[in-house]
Simulated scan of single mutants.
Amino acid sequence: MNILSMMSNLSGMKRKRNTSKQAEGVLVALMLITLFASLRYDAFLSEYNIMTFLSYNSMFILIGLGMCFVIMTGGIDLSVGSVVALSSVVVAHASPYGIEVALPVGILVGVLAGAINAFVITKLKIVPFIATLAMMLGARGMALVLSDNQSVQVSWDSNFTQFGLGKMFDFIPWPIVAMLVAFVFCWILLEKFAFGRHVLSIGGNEEASKLMGLEVNKTLFGVYILSGALAGLSGVMLASGFGAGQPLEGLGWELSAIAAVVVGGTLLTGGLGSITSTLLGAILLGLIFNILNFENGLGTISFSAYWQSVIRGGFLLVVVVIQAKVINSKMRRTEF
């Protein structure tokens, strides 16, 4: 038992060193880009731009946090974008009852989707890629059915839109507050609870985790439910902030989440990851697109919104190639 404890402590120390290096690397890139943008654009550091930027990107950060847990187990969740759309449609229908009803309903939609994903993966033994792909199609189809293939207007007579458009203390938008609360919760869950260690252990070696007596299926249920819940919360933000449930929104958001997680240094193979680095990765990607908007405003370049997908894909490809080279290099050193 003492030997296992020592091995666990050594592994934890090594992981913390690796994740801290990842966070430092992303933070340095973030600071350099921020410095460049602040010198080039007069309104870049204005309160309006900062709050608008963080408020909009809160949705991507939320699904990125959930995706981080999933990827750390060695899995993938392709359904988050569709779950966001489905949640937005459902809460739009529930909006006349106020945010007190719509918010838990939207999160519940995500929890249900995550639970179904987990059941298919753990009980039916379907690989996460296929299981969540099926959910992606099913959730999108259900969103279109419930909305009759059109945007569902929310009720402006209730307090529902205050969640997406209102501010706490007339200063901090509620989406930012919700995102920060979710970030702190996820960080504590990973760093301070056994659940986080189990997630990393499963990603490192699932069979070894079972032999150690870890409740692998229970942990995977928790991970996919968490991912679904955060996607559901993003759907509430979407409907409340834009005034409508949008069944066609969320297309490609799962790729944005994956890109943020991978850019943050989390290994696609699982077993290593950081909530802080994922937050910074999501902000870094969002910041690049924010800069492109400023450049369009200056008229020096003219990039359409479609270029965001091109840039996101390029980032993802570069980081994955770098990860693959690092992993192969470590494997070669281990062999010798």
Rank of each mutant, 00 (worst) to 15 (best):
residue 222 G to K: 08
residue 216 V to H: 00
residue 282 A to W: 09
residue 119 F to K: 08
residue 232 G to P: 00
residue 322 I to R: 12
residue 83 V to H: 06
residue 82 S to T: 09
residue 257 A to D: 02
residue 171 F to N: 15
residue 294 F to H: 14
residue 246 Q to N: 15
residue 206 E to Y: 00
residue 16 K to H: 10
residue 241 G to F: 09
residue 163 F to G: 05
residue 317 L to C: 07
residue 6 M to E: 15
residue 145 V to W: 06
residue 23 A to W: 02
residue 182 A to W: 03
residue 97 Y to P: 00
residue 261 V to C: 04
residue 65 L to Q: 07
residue 320 V to T: 11
residue 319 V to Q: 08
residue 301 I to A: 14
residue 168 M to T: 15
residue 325 K to R: 14
residue 140 R to A: 01
residue 247 P to I: 06
residue 172 I to D: 05
residue 230 L to C: 08
residue 168 M to F: 12
residue 286 G to V: 08
residue 55 S to R: 09
residue 292 L to E: 11
residue 166 G to D: 14
residue 296 N to C: 06
residue 85 A to P: 08
residue 131 A to V: 07
residue 1 M to S: 13
residue 51 M to Y: 14
residue 193 F to W: 14
residue 32 L to A: 15
residue 92 A to N: 02
residue 19 T to Y: 05
residue 112 L to T: 12
residue 256 S to L: 05
residue 197 R to Y: 10
residue 113 A to R: 09
residue 181 V to R: 04
residue 137 L to S: 12
residue 86 L to F: 13
residue 133 L to C: 00
residue 252 G to A: 06
residue 164 G to C: 15
residue 133 L to E: 03
residue 173 P to S: 10
residue 292 L to K: 15
residue 124 L to I: 13
residue 241 G to W: 07
residue 28 V to F: 14
residue 59 M to W: 06
residue 123 K to H: 11
residue 332 R to P: 04
residue 223 V to D: 07
residue 20 S to E: 12
residue 127 V to I: 10
residue 43 A to V: 15
residue 113 A to Y: 01
residue 222 G to N: 11
residue 286 G to C: 07
residue 227 S to I: 01
residue 239 A to C: 13
residue 93 H to G: 02
residue 194 A to D: 15
residue 141 G to R: 01
residue 106 G to K: 06
residue 169 F to R: 13
residue 29 A to N: 01
residue 87 S to L: 03
residue 155 S to T: 10
residue 213 G to I: 08
residue 10 L to P: 03
residue 166 G to N: 15
residue 257 A to I: 03
residue 82 S to L: 13
residue 25 G to Y: 11
residue 265 G to H: 04
residue 254 E to I: 03
residue 52 T to I: 15
residue 297 G to D: 10
residue 57 N to A: 11
residue 317 L to I: 13
residue 335 E to Q: 13
residue 326 V to N: 10
residue 118 A to E: 07
residue 13 M to W: 11
residue 288 I to E: 04
